[in-house]
Simulated scan of single mutants.
Amino acid sequence: MVEKRRFGNLVPHLILLVGVSIVAFPVYLAFVASTHDAATIANGQMQPVPGPHFLENYYRTIFVGTSSSTREPVGTMMLNSFVMAMGIALGKILISIISAYAVVYFRFPFRMTAFWIIFVTLMLPVEVRIYPTYKIVADLGLIDTYAGLTMPLVASATGTLLFRQFFMTIPDELLEASKIDGAGAFRFFKDTVLPLSITTIAALFVIQFIYGWNQYLWPLLITTKDNMQTIVIGIKKMIVTQDALTEWQLAMATAVLAMLPPVVVVVLMQRLFVKGLVETEK
């Protein structure tokens, strides 16, 4: 008989509440700051409750622009970041699932050698190969383009490894049954492997979308026009280090807006994301 303790879960819940408070309080302060005017924040008179300038600040941030350092509205920056994040996430999934399928289900010379070469690229992140990658993109005329933002970051050894490990858990009986039914390699991939990989695809999509959304160094190098800069670069440019006064209310509004797409993606795909990471077959 399991003893029911009245306060058995009190301590874990208190720890969770403290942790959530520590994480959420700075976000709340950023939101509160985004609803006040610049003078209130600069004079240190900001109250811990939302101010009266919510609509004004967010309208100016999204549709008008912020300051001389970021002449483009944040709506344009968010669009650029969204296109970049979606391109990286979908591109990584597509290339990774095809390469993993080839490594697992096809027999060709140096098959494992090719896989290990892909795996070794984990030691070569974009920061290590930044100069040759930039040189190639510049020679191809991809500066200030969405292709230049996404293509160099599409290849993913992590995704290939994740899909390979999952494909190896698919019973061989499914492959044999598919062959008996006369299905070819593409049919087996489309009708059997792909439906079974939904949770893995969802988990990889969430991780790679956030990875692409938070990119800073590569967009900083590859974009020279204001209308191509991403929201992460925009936040950095809003914090003026010269004599000009930083418009903190607009910078905080931009920071709040920058958090929304990743949060929405995680919330919408939470169930598939968790399932794709914790299932025993993975």
Score class of each variant (00 low, 15 high):
residue 103 V to S: 11
residue 20 V to M: 10
residue 32 V to F: 02
residue 82 F to A: 12
residue 206 V to N: 12
residue 213 W to T: 06
residue 188 F to M: 15
residue 21 S to G: 13
residue 218 W to T: 10
residue 276 G to E: 12
residue 156 S to A: 14
residue 259 M to W: 04
residue 93 I to W: 05
residue 171 P to Q: 13
residue 66 T to V: 15
residue 110 F to E: 07
residue 132 P to N: 03
residue 113 T to L: 15
residue 228 M to K: 12
residue 20 V to G: 07
residue 250 L to G: 09
residue 245 L to A: 14
residue 240 V to N: 08
residue 23 V to M: 09
residue 104 V to E: 13
residue 59 Y to W: 14
residue 76 T to H: 01
residue 64 V to A: 01
residue 103 V to E: 10
residue 11 V to T: 04
residue 142 L to R: 11
residue 62 I to N: 01
residue 241 T to L: 12
residue 279 E to C: 02
residue 159 G to M: 04
residue 163 F to H: 06
residue 86 M to G: 00
residue 121 T to N: 09
residue 265 V to K: 06
residue 261 P to A: 10
residue 170 I to E: 01
residue 261 P to M: 10
residue 212 G to A: 08
residue 168 M to C: 07
residue 218 W to D: 11
residue 46 M to I: 15
residue 238 M to D: 01
residue 267 V to C: 03
residue 245 L to P: 06
residue 85 A to M: 09
residue 85 A to H: 11
residue 205 F to I: 00
residue 29 L to Y: 08
residue 14 L to D: 03
residue 190 K to G: 08
residue 127 E to A: 11
residue 69 S to L: 13
residue 276 G to R: 08
residue 93 I to A: 01
residue 71 R to P: 09
residue 233 I to S: 04
residue 181 D to A: 11
residue 198 I to C: 02
residue 253 A to N: 06
residue 122 L to C: 05
residue 111 R to T: 13
residue 41 I to C: 03
residue 195 P to S: 14
residue 11 V to A: 06
residue 281 E to P: 00
residue 170 I to A: 02
residue 36 H to R: 10
residue 80 N to Y: 10
residue 15 I to L: 12
residue 248 W to V: 02
residue 238 M to H: 03
residue 10 L to T: 15
residue 231 I to C: 04
residue 121 T to L: 13
residue 125 P to E: 13
residue 166 F to E: 14
residue 210 I to V: 14
residue 212 G to T: 06
residue 181 D to Y: 07
residue 255 A to P: 09
residue 181 D to F: 06
residue 87 G to Q: 08
residue 155 A to N: 02
residue 160 T to K: 00
residue 112 M to H: 11
residue 217 L to S: 03
residue 191 D to I: 14
residue 234 G to P: 05
residue 238 M to I: 04
residue 52 P to K: 05
residue 230 T to W: 01
residue 155 A to W: 04
residue 47 Q to S: 13
residue 234 G to A: 07
residue 181 D to H: 08
residue 1 M to E: 12
residue 7 F to S: 13
residue 223 T to H: 03
residue 178 S to C: 05
residue 158 T to S: 14
residue 209 F to N: 03
residue 129 R to L: 11
residue 40 T to I: 13
residue 95 I to N: 08
residue 179 K to F: 07
residue 29 L to W: 14
residue 60 R to W: 05
residue 71 R to G: 15
residue 100 A to W: 08
residue 112 M to I: 10
residue 44 G to F: 06
residue 58 Y to V: 10
residue 78 M to W: 07
residue 222 I to E: 02
residue 31 F to D: 02
residue 107 R to D: 15
residue 217 L to E: 05
residue 99 S to R: 02
residue 245 L to W: 09
residue 168 M to F: 05
residue 93 I to L: 13
residue 145 T to C: 02
residue 70 T to P: 04
residue 74 V to G: 01
residue 114 A to L: 15
residue 152 P to K: 06
residue 6 R to K: 15
residue 251 A to Q: 07
residue 46 M to H: 00
residue 262 P to Y: 08
residue 58 Y to N: 07
residue 138 A to Q: 13
